[in-house]
Computed example of a mutant assay.
Amino acid sequence: MRPGPLVVAVALGTMVSVGLGVYGRVHEPALVAINVAGFSSGTAAKSWLGTAAFALALVQLGSARRMHRGGGRVAAGLHRWSGRAAVLLTVPVAVHCLYALGYQDTTVRVLVHSLAGCAVYGAFVAKMLVLGRPGGPRWAVPVLGALLFVVLTALWLTSSLWFFTTSGPTL
């Protein structure tokens, strides 16, 4: 893959991130959104779903490491399916955050969370676009995967971990 498609993938990912941020900023927060059955609140639901997505991101990290050491089809399958499940778990979280809360910058924690929330989907889009292109630079997918892991970790630290340490691990 020539540098052009990589630049296009990163540009499209950036546009997704900026688009989410703009929507979150201009949208009037509803302060309530969907609540997943079995959870006491939308915040509890997003904290637990975010924790499950973060746990799957750790599986992604381990399976990627194994794949790059010749782990074969089992590691590749685990990586693929844990990634799919992690992204699916983040969708209700993102809907809740964007619709109910919007993009906020009231504290440093909230600002970092808002920025990382926008960046996670941009990094995901860029990685998926590069992944499907044969002949690309060997470093592109691992670097974009690492970026995705870093922003998902930032999201978990600034939301789920914060929620559990301030409210306790309640459902």
Rank of each mutant, 00 (worst) to 15 (best):
L115W: 08
G13D: 03
L144Q: 07
V8C: 05
A154S: 14
T158P: 13
G145K: 01
G42P: 11
M1Y: 14
R73E: 15
L148F: 15
L61M: 15
A37V: 06
F124C: 05
G102I: 10
W139R: 09
V36D: 12
R84K: 04
P3A: 04
F164G: 12
L152K: 01
A52I: 10
L98E: 11
V18H: 13
G38C: 04
A85T: 15
A9G: 09
L89G: 05
V32Y: 03
P29F: 00
M15S: 14
Q104T: 15
P137Q: 07
R109D: 13
S159F: 11
V120W: 08
Y99I: 04
A76T: 01
Y121G: 04
E28I: 08
L49C: 07
S41I: 02
M1N: 13
T166R: 12
T153G: 15
A37I: 01
H113I: 01
T107G: 11
L49Y: 05
L171C: 05
G83L: 00
A146I: 00
A126H: 11
V36G: 06
V26M: 14
L6G: 03
Q104N: 09
G71R: 04
N35S: 07
V110L: 14
C97M: 06
A45V: 05
P137F: 13
A100Y: 06
L115F: 00
W156Y: 09
A30T: 14
S40K: 00
R73C: 05
G50R: 08
L88W: 11
V87F: 10
A94W: 06
V125A: 15
K46T: 14
A57K: 02
F149H: 02
R69S: 08
V32M: 07
L61Q: 12
T107F: 15
W81L: 02
T166P: 10
A55E: 10
G50E: 09
V8W: 11
C118F: 05
V120G: 00
V108F: 05
L144A: 04
V143P: 07
M128W: 11
A45I: 03
L31W: 06
V22Y: 12
V7M: 05
G38E: 02
A55G: 14
H113D: 06
P137Y: 13
L78V: 14
A126Y: 02
Y99N: 01
T165V: 12
M1I: 08
A55Q: 08
L111H: 09
V108R: 02
G70R: 02
H27A: 13
S82Y: 01
G38P: 07
F54K: 08
S63D: 12
S47Y: 08
P134M: 00
G145F: 03
G38W: 08
G19P: 04
Y23A: 11
Y23P: 09
Y23H: 13
A76D: 15
P92S: 00
T51H: 11
F124M: 10
S63F: 08
A100M: 10
G145L: 01
R109Y: 14
T170M: 02
Q104Y: 13
